[in-house]
Each structure stands twice: as structure tokens, then as C-alpha cells.
């Protein structure tokens, strides 16, 4: 797995709303259309990752979300 290609996918995902929507719908296609050429190992890893869930769904998987500032009264 080439670290650089994953870093570039993260960059693109964070900064490009269209790419983000595409990845959630069909990750392999969106990543291919964006010009990333993956080898077999990378494609297998891609298939094992869940891209489909929205932030809200991911956050809701835990009862209290991922993080929550609490108990800081009178600030």
C-alpha cells in the first residue's frame, strides 16, 4: 500500500465536495475517475473499507458520538 496515494485521496476527500460525494456512492469508481491508479492490493484494501456512511451516521454509531465537551460550566 503506497502511503502517498492514500494521503492524496485524503487531501482530495477533505477539499473536494464532489469527490467526497462520489466516494460515498461508489468509492472505486470515484477514485479511478479522479485519476488514481490502484494496484490489486490497494483495490482489495479499498473494498474492505466502509466509505458509505455519512459523518452523522458514523458519529451516531456510538451513543455519545465520538467526542463531546462536557462539564465546563461558567466558561
Amino acid at each position: 500500500m503506497r502511503e502517498q496515494i492514500v494521503k492524496e485521496i485524503v487531501d482530495r476527500y477533505v477539499s473536494d465536495e464532489t469527490f467526497r460525494a462520489g466516494v460515498r456512492a461508489d468509492p472505486e469508481r470515484a477514485i479511478r475517475n479522479a485519476g488514481f491508479k490502484l494496484d490489486d492490493e490497494e483495490r482489495a484494501l479499498l473494498k474492505s473499507v466502509d466509505f458509505s456512511q455519512t459523518d452523522e451516521q458514523l458519529s451516531a454509531r456510538m451513543s455519545a458520538g465520538w467526542s463531546d465537551p462536557i462539564g465546563t460550566p461558567w466558561d
Partner: peptide, 15 residues
């Protein structure tokens, strides 16, 4: 020092 609290899930804890 400040008495502030923050809760994290398992995922948040890993981060």
C-alpha cells in the same frame, strides 16, 4: 487545572 471534562467514544479515544 481547569476542571474541564471531555468524553470520548472508543473511536475518539483511539484518536
Amino acid at each position: 487545572d481547569t476542571g474541564a471534562f471531555f468524553q470520548l467514544s472508543e473511536s475518539g479515544w483511539r484518536i
